[in-house]
Structures are given as C-alpha cells and as structure tokens.
C-alpha cells in the first residue's frame, strides 16, 4: 500500500510538476510598477502594454490582444492587493481568490468596477461567468 502510494505520489509529482512548472514558466508578471491593470474578469495583473501585447491568458475570449480599446474596457486600474500565484492548483490563496483554475500570474485580491454592459452580455452569451470580485471575497 505504502509502496503504491509512494509510486503514485512520485508519479503524481512528476506529472504535475512539468505541467505546472511549464505554466509558470510561461507566466508573466507585470513588467512595470506603473500602469498596472487588472483584468476585470479574472483579476490578473499586468501592465496595459502587456495586455495589449498578449491579451489576458485566462480570458482569451475578451480578445484584448492588439486591441487597446478593448483592453481599456476589460481592465481596470482599481484593484487592491497583489498575489503572485505560482501554483494555482496548490495554492490556498489562489483557491480563496478563486483563481485556482487560472494560469500562474499575479492576481489582484479585489477588483473594483463592473464589466461593460456589452461585454457582460457577450460573456453571458458565451456562457462564461465573470466576476468583478468585491473587496475581500
């Protein structure tokens, strides 16, 4: 039994690490201390430029890449707290912020503001749930 466990765990680790490490390796932190925005849907923090260049990795359907207007609409500068999540699957903080299903990255603890009506509808039609998380949740 214990041998099994060991084996499984070993396998588990092995499997998990590449996946998560790979994701982490691809993750991006804000490149600048200024101009940081939070994605209104997932709360990931990047600079506006990063959003424009890469879009939001969690919310590709927001279609922010190369679309500054869209970036402005879908991101907000009004957020509080930063959590750098390296391992969303394991991290309790990620779980608490409900970003555990997202990719590694820096996330805001709370995001203020609401989605644009238009985008809101769009998201709903896609069946995507979004949350502009209230402070503290």
């Amino acid at each position: 039994m214990s041998a099994y466990m060991d084996e499984e765990d070993v396998g588990d680790e092995e499997e998990r690490v590449p996946q998560q490490v790979a994701e982490l390796a691809r993750a991006s932190a804000p490149t600048n201390m200024k101009g940081i925005r939070a994605c209104k849907r997932c709360g990931i923090l990047k600079t506006l430029d990063q959003f424009i260049d890469d879009g939001c990795e969690n919310c590709p359907f927001l279609d922010m890449a190369d679309n500054p207007d869209r970036c402005n609409l879908c991101t907000t500068a009004f957020f509080e707290g930063q959590v750098a999540v390296m391992d969303p699957r394991e991290s309790w903080t990620a779980k608490w912020l409900r970003v555990d299903a997202y990719l590694p990255g820096v996330y805001a603890i709370s995001v203020t503001g609401t989605m644009d009506k238009e985008i809101e509808e769009e998201l709903e039609s896609r069946g995507c749930r979004y949350r502009c998380r209230p402070a503290g949740s």
Partner: peptide, 15 residues
C-alpha cells in the same frame, strides 16, 4: 521554472 527548477512556493501575497 524556466530552468526547470521550480521553487516550491505556491504564491506570494502583498495585501
């Protein structure tokens, strides 16, 4: 992580 040597931390918080 890019070097394949992940640090064993899961998150860092600045609240």
């Amino acid at each position: 992580a890019r070097q394949g040597k992940p640090l064993g931390i899961t998150s860092a918080v600045a609240a």
